[in-house]
């Protein structure tokens, strides 16, 4: 048997006819038997009725009804005037993704699509744009890759500053065609050298290490390689060209007839700094004026 409290808990739903048949008849049964609950319930039921009876009083003014009817008629007239074909796609494509374009005013669509387009373009330009590509970049990067993976046999390994300088001089002599820069060797280790050829020209390859990263320096004399397609930037008075391949940054510059390249995972700016600080051009005196 249902208690009064149980019944009262469901009073409102009973009143609003929201109970399922089982619960409804259980409450009904209780109310029929319990005088107190019956009284309460009838009171609430009457209250609900009073709210309805005393508030539902506004008749729609005739002029409003008339105006709405005539406006709707005018709208329907308007729609039936043009070719029925115009109406077809309008009602047809309102669902799914098309609703996005047809339901909303054009400017809302624009307001959403425009920033997305701009963002995509910016992301593409900043991160994904294929940086200028040239065969020399590929050669330099691949050579650096084998250097990084220790697949390259180098002739000399030393970190001694004088050794490095001497070696650079040797390199100069054995590669008369190559204009080897003087080496100031600041915080830079020489890991080895090698003679190579690049695009049919003799080249000198130098494996370096600085800032815990391996760096490849390569010098080709008389190179007529066209670098104009690559991005370029002036840094400390020297014009550098850039390229990127296999995740390596390649920085190229010319000094006289010689083309130099530095390749590493370092970013461009750091590479340019290495280039300008550690490898001053052949004719420039070293800052500390030694020898």
């Amino acid at each position: 048997m249902m208690t009064c409290n149980e019944a009262i808990e469901q009073f409102q739903e009973f009143l609003d006819n929201e109970l399922d048949d089982g619960n409804h008849s259980a409450i009904k049964q209780h109310i029929e038997m319990c005088y107190k609950c019956c009284e309460k319930f009838e009171f609430e039921q009457n209250f609900k009725k009073i709210i309805k009876d005393k508030t539902f009083l506004h008749k729609t003014p005739q002029h409003l009804l008339q105006s709405i009817v005539s406006r709707l008629a005018a709208l329907n007239e308007e729609h039936s005037q043009p070719e029925p074909i115009v109406l077809e796609p309008k009602t047809k494509y309102h669902t799914g993704i098309f609703g996005f374009f047809t339901l909303r005013p054009a400017f809302v669509t624009m307001a959403i699509l425009l920033p997305i387009t701009i963002t995509c373009l910016a992301v593409y330009l900043v991160f994904l744009r294929p940086t200028g590509f040239s065969p020399i970049i590929q050669v330099a990067a691949e050579r650096h890759d084998s250097f990084v993976n220790d697949n390259m046999h180098l002739d000399l390994v030393s970190s001694d500053r004088n050794e490095i300088r001497r070696h650079f001089e040797n390199l100069q002599q054995s590669n008369l065609a190559v204009d080897v820069p003087k080496w100031s060797g600041r915080e830079m280790k020489l890991l080895g050298c090698k003679n190579y050829s690049m695009a049919g020209k003799k080249s000198a390859y130098v494996g370096l290490s600085g800032d815990h990263k391996k760096i490849s320096l390569e010098m080709v004399n008389d190179s007529d390689m066209n670098l104009n397609k690559l991005d370029h930037e002036i840094f400390k008075g020297r014009s550098y060209h850039f390229g990127r391949y296999k995740g390596y940054n390649v920085v190229l510059w010319r000094q006289g007839k010689t083309l130099y390249s530095l390749t590493s995972t370092m970013n461009r700016r750091d590479l340019m700094r290495v280039a300008s600080e550690s490898i001053p051009s052949y004719n420039t005196r070293l800052p500390d004026g030694q020898e």
Partner: peptide, 9 residues
């Protein structure tokens, strides 16, 4: 339109 009175109210 049959529901206009309810809406207006």
């Amino acid at each position: 339109l049959e529901h206009i009175d309810s809406l207006f109210n």
